[in-house]
């Protein structure tokens, strides 16, 4: 079943095109990577799906429902979890409390003034942490965690809302190399088991090629290539973007030689 359909998204910032006719689809259980150089419009497209940005035109359909332009909290309630480029967690709380908070919000009980929040959804929270091998750090304050573990907590928070779709903006940015592979394995495993669709942007090509089912390549706001990792790797256009424009090369060499 097609979980997410993005149709002709456009976004301009003061005349600068950040997304032009961006269209793609994502099936349940599929992992889709979005790559491209800095300023290619990855975050813009991503944030239009997550509700942080409103598209100038185009549609975002989640399981047949139009979600374009809804605020993030409404999109979250429809089953979309997300992680941010710089991990966003509740720094004043313990790991467990972060998860309890997410579960309280999922249950719609954030205005409850009578219950004691520390007693709510403890077991469910511990269960989620267990899935991510973080049960031992449950009582730790967020400030004491390594950044890789902060990212894992953020993932757990996103999973607390039992999402159908997971949006991850550079999930491995800022992590030590060894932690990156582990996190991506974890995400892929959970997504495949639970049939969650995953859309992620990433700079770490190891992570992209190891786990993505399909890859979108964005340049200057436009999708220039889409397909399986093999197709994308072999695409000459993509090679050019990542290795520099060959046409320019001879000219520059000649000039360098002329200058001695």
């Amino acid at each position: 079943m097609t979980l997410l359909v993005v149709e002709n998204l456009n976004k301009n910032f003061g005349g600068v095109v950040a997304a032009r006719n961006v269209s793609f689809a994502l099936a349940a259980g599929e992992i889709l990577a979005m790559i491209g150089p800095n300023g290619a419009g990855k975050s813009t497209s991503f944030n239009m799906v997550g509700g942080q940005l409103r598209p100038d035109s185009g549609r975002v359909m989640l399981a047949g429902q139009d979600i374009s332009g809804l605020p993030p909290r409404a999109i979250c309630r429809l089953g979309v979890g997300r992680s941010f480029q710089v991990a966003q967690t509740f720094l004043s709380m313990s790991v467990l409390e972060n998860l309890q908070m997410a579960l309280i919000a999922y249950a719609g009980r954030t205005r409850d003034m009578l219950a004691r929040s520390s007693a709510l959804y403890r077991d469910e929270a511990l269960g989620l942490l267990d899935q991510l091998d973080m049960a031992e750090q449950a009582e730790w304050p967020m400030g004491a965690l390594a950044y890789g573990d902060v990212k894992r907590v953020e993932l757990a928070i996103a999973l607390a809302g039992a999402p159908r779709l997971l949006l991850m903006d550079e999930p491995t940015a800022g992590m030590a190399p060894a932690e990156r592979a582990a996190l991506m394995r974890l995400v892929a495993g959970i997504a495949r088991r639970a049939g969650i669709g995953v859309l992620f942007t990433e700079h770490d090509m190891d992570a992209v090629f190891a786990h993505a089912d399909r890859i979108l390549v964005l340049v200057r706001g436009e999708i220039i290539a889409a397909g399986s990792p093999e197709d994308v790797r072999a695409n000459p256009e993509v090679q050019r973007v990542y290795l520099g424009t060959s046409g320019l090369r001879a000219a520059l060499r000649a000039r360098a030689a002329a200058h001695g």
Partner: peptide, 10 residues
């Protein structure tokens, strides 16, 4: 740099 040609030229 990310642009190899540019870097190689200079």
């Amino acid at each position: 740099e990310q642009n190899f040609d540019f870097a190689a030229a200079v």
